[in-house]
Amino acid sequence: MQTNLYLVRHAHSAYTPDELGRPLSAQGFIDAKRISKVLENEKIDVVNSSQYKRAVQTVEGISQVIGKKIIIENGFKERKLAENPVDDFDSAILKVWQNPSFSWKGGESNIDAQKRGVSAIFKLLDKYAEKNIAVGTHGNTIVLIMNCFDEKYDFHFWKNLDMPDIYKLTFDKKVLQTVTRVWDRE
């Protein structure tokens, strides 16, 4: 039997310096309702999320529809690029993708962030085998997890993600079988 993980990139958020508490924007809330409808059709059994407010708010609707609380999982948190804001985000993020073991001061390397995310995935696969699991998370975390299973999910793939976005990863035990995009930006 198969287990389906729906990795949900959070909807658009209104920028604040409070990275953890940054809420969805007005457009983000509209998209979160659409996310809920898409996931409702997927017969979700369990909802997990990063602890970041924007990720939680993106999957709140589906948790309400299925009548189950969101389970917070630290492994799905946003990747920490650096201790302090970087001057040039684009070049800073490109560098960590070009050199997976490199990290900026106080930040996570791709290897470290990937290990964290994949470990969280394997915990879900053990605990919720044969279930449909929604995971509210972040773009870099999603692509780093997917990259562990197939290197075609890389920096360029990440750059082309929508916000929000949903990728369904179908596993047979802990072996990835298929990846399907289930989000269609209208």
Score class of each variant (00 low, 15 high):
26 A>Q: 14
67 G>I: 12
57 Q>E: 12
7 L>W: 14
89 F>V: 03
140 N>C: 11
99 N>F: 05
121 I>C: 08
41 N>V: 04
179 V>Q: 08
142 I>R: 02
51 Q>N: 15
28 G>N: 05
96 V>H: 01
170 T>P: 03
78 E>V: 08
161 L>I: 05
97 W>P: 01
23 P>H: 07
30 I>H: 13
142 I>M: 09
32 A>E: 03
89 F>I: 05
46 V>E: 14
45 D>H: 14
166 I>R: 07
89 F>N: 00
156 H>W: 09
177 Q>V: 12
145 I>T: 13
185 R>E: 09
93 I>T: 07
166 I>A: 05
36 S>P: 12
128 Y>P: 08
100 P>A: 13
163 M>L: 06
25 S>G: 05
63 S>V: 06
172 D>R: 11
142 I>S: 01
64 Q>E: 15
114 Q>V: 03
28 G>L: 02
100 P>L: 03
136 G>S: 02
146 M>W: 03
130 E>V: 10
161 L>N: 06
5 L>E: 10
184 D>K: 14
31 D>F: 06
78 E>S: 06
91 S>G: 11
125 L>A: 00
140 N>G: 14
133 I>K: 05
153 Y>S: 05
140 N>Y: 14
24 L>C: 03
35 I>C: 01
45 D>M: 03
39 L>Q: 10
62 I>D: 06
3 T>C: 03
151 E>P: 07
21 G>E: 01
85 P>E: 01
172 D>A: 10
165 D>P: 00
92 A>R: 00
108 E>R: 02
169 L>H: 07
122 F>W: 06
90 D>A: 00
147 N>T: 04
5 L>H: 07
18 D>F: 11
34 R>A: 08
33 K>S: 12
176 L>Y: 08
